[in-house]
Computed example of a mutant assay.
Amino acid sequence: MSEGKFQIGLIQMDSGDQWEGNRKAAARYISQAAEAGASLVIFPETVDYIGTDFRGSAAEVPGPVTDFFREQAVKYGLYLHCGSITERVPGSLPKNTSLVFGPDGTILGRYSKLHLFDVELEEGPSYRESDDVTGGEDICLVKTPLCTMGLSVCYDMRFPELYRLMAGHGAQLLVNCANFTANTGKDHWEPLLRARAIENTCYVAAVGQCGRKPKFQAWGHTMLVSPWGEVIAALENEPGVLTGEIDLGKLEQVRRQIPSLKNVREDVYRLESRRMKVYPEVM
């Protein structure tokens, strides 16, 4: 690996309602990503379970699901972002939680999805994510020797303020793990991701679920976007592994060409975060 460059592996899954099947698929894809030279592997949203009983199937943290990802990170000596899992919260609804593991198996950082998709249309479908999970409270950055990552989950991508705050606090790679619907994905997925990359001069890694889910068809189309807004690589709507290169030298070059992060008029307007966590912390 050249200085400032590393390989990333993005794993598109068709997760179902049985952890054992999801686990076997995840292990196979991690092996493939490692063989391709990935130093960082990222999974999609709710990688452990997608069914009709998120509350009843919520996972303990730590527990068997997190033990699996920890062991895989150690086995292959890589950084591993588990996408997200439905985390059991005693006495409350679960949280949609991302965990980042280091090559030694340590949990380096955790983030719970902030924005929950609640929609009620008079002449259309209604969906309330808040009936199944509760939202997080903190913006999250994870610093590693590879890069600084800003974490987000699915619907979060529609809130540009979140990404500008993460970029302003040092994020170089903006990660979104998702279970996006095909209905909105065909029109919104790529434009939103490229916009988040361009406006923040960051790499964007967006990792999606694919396949038919209980309530909708998932969009898939996992992709890696450069700080210039180029789609470096992308998948269609089948499970698999997408690999690509992160080049922090290129990121710095783009930021010199388009210095939007430096040109903010804080004398006129300002974005402020009330809750920003920068990992690693002692966990």
Rank of each mutant, 00 (worst) to 15 (best):
A73K: 03
G4L: 01
I42N: 03
R265T: 06
E245K: 13
W219P: 06
I139D: 10
G249P: 05
T97Y: 04
P239F: 03
V268E: 12
R158E: 14
V74G: 04
N183M: 06
L271A: 08
A167T: 03
M149W: 06
M1R: 14
Y155D: 11
A27T: 09
P44W: 03
E266D: 14
M13P: 03
R270T: 11
K5A: 09
F68G: 08
K277W: 05
G105S: 11
I8S: 04
K95A: 09
T181D: 13
G109N: 10
K24M: 14
M1T: 12
G220R: 07
G135T: 10
E272C: 13
G105A: 09
P103L: 03
R194G: 00
G124F: 05
F69S: 06
M13K: 07
R164K: 15
F117V: 09
Y29V: 01
G124K: 04
N176H: 10
G16F: 05
Q12M: 13
E252P: 01
G170T: 10
S273Y: 02
E245I: 12
V278W: 02
A26K: 02
A233T: 11
Y203T: 00
D267R: 00
L40P: 00
R55G: 09
E238I: 03
E199S: 11
F159P: 10
T134E: 14
E122A: 15
